[in-house]
Amino acid sequence: MALSLQSPFTQQVLDSLRAGDQVLLSGVVYTARDAAHARFCTALAAGEPLPVDLRGQTIFYAGPTPTPPGKASGAIGPTTSTRMDPYTPPLLAYGVKALIGKGQRSEEVKAALMQNGAAYFVAVGGCAASLAACVQSVEVLAYPDLGTESVKKLVIRDLPLTVAIDTRGEDFYREGQKRYLESVR
């Protein structure tokens, strides 16, 4: 059974999650990919505020297709998280609490998640037509010059996710593959 949860998360909820938990996430998340992350980290290094206050918030690594007229959102889905690894520890130290993407993370990111009590979720990659139905609104908040890579506020409802790395640093990629291999041994 999937857990119905709200974003932003409370620390108590985040701490209660375990790698492998299925989640239906509702509430507010912010999109940011490579180019926005680079700008965030330049701002943080210079001691400047981010264009959007992301402390306590959830970042979704996603660049949707344009929203066609009459629809709430274009197709949307996670991009590969590894590319955001170099930018992630400073953002977690700044106060971002949850990340949504796809694929494994580095040991540095795992350590930073544990240290900051944050969690990493994944959505199924390449299912953007289905996931679009979970997005109720899309609003560009910062860096409009980046096109699909701009920072957008999404209001979502029941976005299906899996907890990939929990606040204790447990990694469901490792665990899931191990469980499968044991099941066929």
Binding site: G63, G74, A75, G126, A129, A132
Partner: peptide, 27 residues
């Protein structure tokens, strides 16, 4: 669990083709 993911992937392709939306956001 893998069967379940495969089912979601197949459903997504059907949604994309019938609603005329991209299968994946990375076009």
């Amino acid at each position: 669990p893998a069967q379940n993911t495969l089912r979601l992937i197949r459903q997504n392709a059907v949604v994309a083709a019938t609603k005329n939306v991209p299968i994946c956001q990375d076009t």
